[in-house]
């Protein structure tokens, strides 16, 4: 399970947690999130702008 971060506002999409409000239940893979899905916090970046968060 990976995490992806919005490079504008820092919002993190965590595949393990999903994002229920946006219709992505826990475990939803990043590949299943639509390409034009906008960051739910700032809306000025889309999925394809997100960067993978490397594990510590």
């Amino acid at each position: 399970m990976a995490k992806y971060q919005c490079d504008n506002c820092g919002f993190v999409y965590d595949e393990a947690e999903g994002f229920a409000k946006e219709g992505f239940p826990p475990g939803t893979a990043w590949s299943r999130v639509p390409d034009d899905w906008a960051c739910p916090d700032c809306a000025v970046r889309e999925k394809i702008d997100f960067e993978r968060v490397e594990d510590e």
Binding site: C9, D41, C42, A43, V44
Partner: peptide, 10 residues
């Protein structure tokens, strides 16, 4: 300061 607001909405 609308340009900064649109660049960084939060």
């Amino acid at each position: 300061r609308h340009s900064d607001h649109h660049a960084n909405p939060t």
